[in-house]
């Protein structure tokens, strides 16, 4: 099994521009149930056999959608997340990059106390290998298995997954939580999910400079995590005060450096890879230390 996403998930796509359409097909080819699309004003039409609705709540009502994936451009993306929340969608995955932070402050407040979980924004999405993929990651590099992967970055996640797969280690669920300063699901949230998941035996956590979410996760892991954890932090050589591509990747006011995060994780008993080429190796080391076997 897995966390959050499985073969029974029914996905509605919000934002059917070229990108949304391309990935709707990609996810469907992977075997995901892509049951609906939303495009206000185009309700009643279809895209490649996938019915289009005017609103998310119609997609929920008519097609039983329980996951939403959002490709809506930045000016409308926050509204799209809140629409999905309002329609009661339990899992909302926002791929959109470039949403103003102020919009995300409102989204976060709006979602408080509601039952929806947001993944992203500015993320590759989530995949449960062999069951379903929701997002833009290349499905074929993954292999079903028992290691969870959680990351703020897209291509660096693919790199980690690739290393695991090459080593014969499959993945339970891989979550790209996104590179923005305000995100729906944090490293700590993901750790809790993996810790409770009977089908995840170990976790790779990939962080980067900026904020202190990795330190928070390290503190949680130290107190609660029963499974082996390996980690890599990107941006060890990044200069302070510069935004490294991701809106959230910036060392500011002496906070958010890779060194601090690596130290916090190491102190929490996490096996930290210094080189990004050693993420898979670090995971195997962490497993060996705790006598856990993840090879299949």
């Amino acid at each position: 099994m897995s966390v959050l996403l499985n073969k029974d998930s029914r996905v509605v796509t919000q934002g059917l521009g070229a990108t949304g359409k391309f990935h709707l097909q990609g996810c469907r080819e992977y075997g995901t149930q892509m049951v609906a699309g939303v495009r206000p004003g185009k309700g009643g039409t279809d895209f490649e056999g996938c019915p289009i609705f005017d609103t998310v709540s119609q997609a929920v009502e008519k097609e039983g959608a329980n996951v939403s994936v959002i490709y809506v451009p930045p000016p409308g993306a926050a509204d799209a997340i809140m629409e999905a929340t309002d329609a009661g969608i339990p899992l909302i995955v926002c791929i959109t990059e470039g949403i103003p932070a102020a919009d995300m402050v409102r989204v976060k407040r709006f979602m408080e106390g509601k039952d929806s979980r947001l993944i992203g924004p500015n993320c590759p999405g989530i995949i449960t290998p062999g069951e379903a993929k929701v997002g833009i990651m290349p499905g074929y590099i993954h292999k079903p298995g028992r290691v969870g992967v959680v990351s703020r970055s897209g291509t660096l996640t693919y790199e980690a997954v690739h290393q695991l797969t090459l080593a014969g280690v499959g993945q339970s669920t891989c979550i790209g939580i996104g590179g923005d300063p305000i995100i729906g699901t944090t490293h700590t949230d993901a750790m809790k999910l993996y810790n409770d998941d009977p089908d995840t035996d170990a976790v790779i956590m990939i962080g980067e400079i900026g904020g202190n979410a990795e330190e928070t996760a390290a503190a949680w892991v130290k107190e609660n995590m029963t499974k082996p954890v390996a980690a890599f932090i990107g941006g060890q050589t990044a200069p302070p005060g510069k935004r490294m591509g991701h809106a959230g990747a910036i060392i500011s006011g002496g906070q958010g450096s890779a060194a601090d995060k690596m130290a916090a994780l190491t102190a929490a008993g996490v096996t930290v890879a210094k080189s990004p080429a050693d993420m898979g190796k670090a995971l195997l080391e962490a497993c060996e230390k705790q006598g856990v076997s993840v090879k299949s």
């Binding site: 990351s151 897209g154 660096l156 790199e159 060890q236 050589t237 990044a238 591509g245 991701h246 080189s275």
Partner: peptide, 23 residues
């Protein structure tokens, strides 16, 4: 390609004794 991998690439260059000229 990708901000995370771009940072990691700088890091791995440093790890092997070099220094990145850019992100």
């Amino acid at each position: 390609n990708g901000a995370g991998l771009a940072m990691a690439t700088m890091d791995i260059i440093h790890h092997h004794g070099g220094e990145p000229a850019n992100f």
